[in-house]
Design a protein around this nucleic acid. Structure first.
Lengths: 211, 211
DNA sequence: GCACATACCTGCACGCGTGTAGGTAGACTT
DNA sequence: AAGTCTACCTACACGCGTGCAGGTATGTGC
C-alpha cells in the first residue's frame, strides 16, 4: 500500500512498492497460478496500477521469477537452515517437515506447489525456475536420506532420489491439505515424513483418537 | 481420430468423437489446466475442429465437467471398488494406495490434482465438481480409518478428517512424483500410506537400498 | 428417392489481458 | 531555484481465445 507518503526517499519508495507488488504477486500466483493471473489484479491488490508494475519489472515472466526467488529464499532461511543446524540426518529431515508445516500457514508454500503443477511438462522459464528449486531441495533431502541410511537411523528402501521426491511431495501435499489448521498438522506432517522414510511411528500414547 | 469413415451409424460417430474429445480434453486439462487450455488445441488433438466440440458440448465448462465425471468414474471402478472388495479396513486403504499408483501411469490421476490446485479458493462450477469428488473420497477414507481404529489394525492419531485429507494428499503427490516410474512406486506409495496412518513399516529386508 | 435431421466445418464479433507510449508529480543535483 | 531524473499513471494497439452463425456433407424415416 502506498501509505500517506510521509516524505520518503526514492529508493525507499521503490523498495516498498516492489515488496508490495511481490507479495501481491505471490498471493495471486498461489491462488490463481501463472497463466490465469491478471497483472491488473496484482497491481490493484498492492495498491498500484499496472504502470508501476511494468516500471519495476520488465514483464510478467520477470515478476514471477522474482516471486520464485523470494519464496525460495524464504524456504531456505525458515526451513532449510534450521534443519541443517541439527546434526543428525533424520532429525534434520523431521525438522524440515515441521518447519514446512509452519510455513504453510502463510500460504507462501502453496506458490511452489501451484507453479510446479502448472508447469510440469512445459518448458517455460518460470517452470524451469521452480523445477530448479525443487531439484535443489530434493538433492539436499536425498543426501540426508543417504547419510541417515549410512548411520542406521533410516532403514533401507527405494532409491534415494525417488524417496526424496516422495518426501518432497508429501511435504507439499500435506502442507496444502492442512493449510491454516490447528497444531495437529505438525504431528501429521511428522507421521507422514516418517512413513516415506520407512520409520516406525514415534510411540505416542496420548494422541487424540477421533474427531 | 475420425478414421477413414467406413460407413458408421450416427450414434456410433457421435460416441466415437465424443470419446476422442473427452480423452484429448483430459490430457489437455492434465497438462495445461482449465484456464490455460485452448479448445482449438483439444479439438485439433482429437482430430476435429472446434465446431465439433461446440456441437457435442455446450461450452468449455460442460466439457471440463464431463472430464471430471469420467475421471471420477474411472477412479471409482479401478481403485475404489477393488479396495471395497477387501474385507479389512487397513487392507482396503493399502489397496487404494496401490491402485492409485497404478492409475497414475495413465496420467489420468493428474487431472484431479491439476484442477484441484487450480480451483481451490475460487468458486467455479468445475472447482466445485472436483471438490465434491475429493470430498467423497475423503469421506470414504475417513470411514475406513475409523473402522480400522475400532478393530485395532490402525493406531489412534490426529482426527480422522485430517488424516484422511493427508492420506489423499499423499496419494496425489506421490502419484505425480512417480508418474511413469518403475514398480518401486507401489512400495513407496505403501510406505507413505502406512506413514500417515501411523503404522510401522512392513518388515521388508530385501528392499533395494541405494541408487 | 425426397425431405429432414444431424455431424462437422469455416468465418466473425466480442472480451480480456499483455505490453508500450506519452504524460504528471514528486525527489535529487548544483 | 532551475533542470533533470524517476516513480507512477492513463490510454492505446495487438494477440488470443471463446462462443455463435451460417454453410456443407452424410446418415435416416417415409
Amino acid at each position: 500500500m502506498p501509505e500517506s507518503t510521509p516524505r520518503r526517499t526514492q529508493a525507499e519508495r521503490r523498495a516498498a512498492t516492489r515488496a508490495a507488488l511481490l507479495e501481491a504477486a505471490a498471493r495471486g500466483l498461489s491462488s490463481h497460478g501463472y497463466a490465469n493471473l491478471a497483472l491488473e489484479r496484482v497491481a490493484r491488490d498492492a495498491g498500484y496500477s499496472r504502470g508501476a508494475l511494468y516500471h519495476l519489472f520488465a514483464d510478467k515472466e520477470e515478476l514471477a521469477l522474482a516471486v520464485v526467488d523470494w519464496v525460495s529464499e524464504l524456504w531456505d532461511s525458515e526451513v532449510l537452515q534450521p534443519a541443517r543446524a541439527e546434526g543428525e540426518p533424520l532429525t534434520s529431515l523431521l525438522s524440515m517437515a515441521r518447519g514446512h508445516a509452519r510455513l504453510c500457514r502463510h500460504d507462501v508454500a502453496r506458490v511452489m506447489l501451484t507453479l510446479e503443477v502448472e508447469f510440469t511438462g512445459q518448458d517455460h522459464p518460470v517452470g524451469s525456475a521452480i523445477a530448479a528449486v525443487v531439484e535443489q531441495l530434493e538433492s539436499e533431502i536425498a543426501e540426508l536420506i543417504a547419510a541417515g541410511r549410512r548411520n542406521g537411523s533410516i532403514p533401507p528402501g527405494p532409491p534415494q532420489r525417488l524417496t526424496a521426491a516422495a518426501f518432497m511431495g508429501v511435504l507439499e501435499s500435506i502442507g496444502i491439505a492442512l493449510a491454516g489448521q490447528a497444531p495437529h498438522d505438525v504431528e501429521l506432517m511428522e507421521r507422514a515424513a516418517r512413513g516415506v522414510l520407512g520409520i516406525a511411528p514415534a510411540t505416542d500414547a496420548g494422541a487424540p483418537t477421533g474427531d
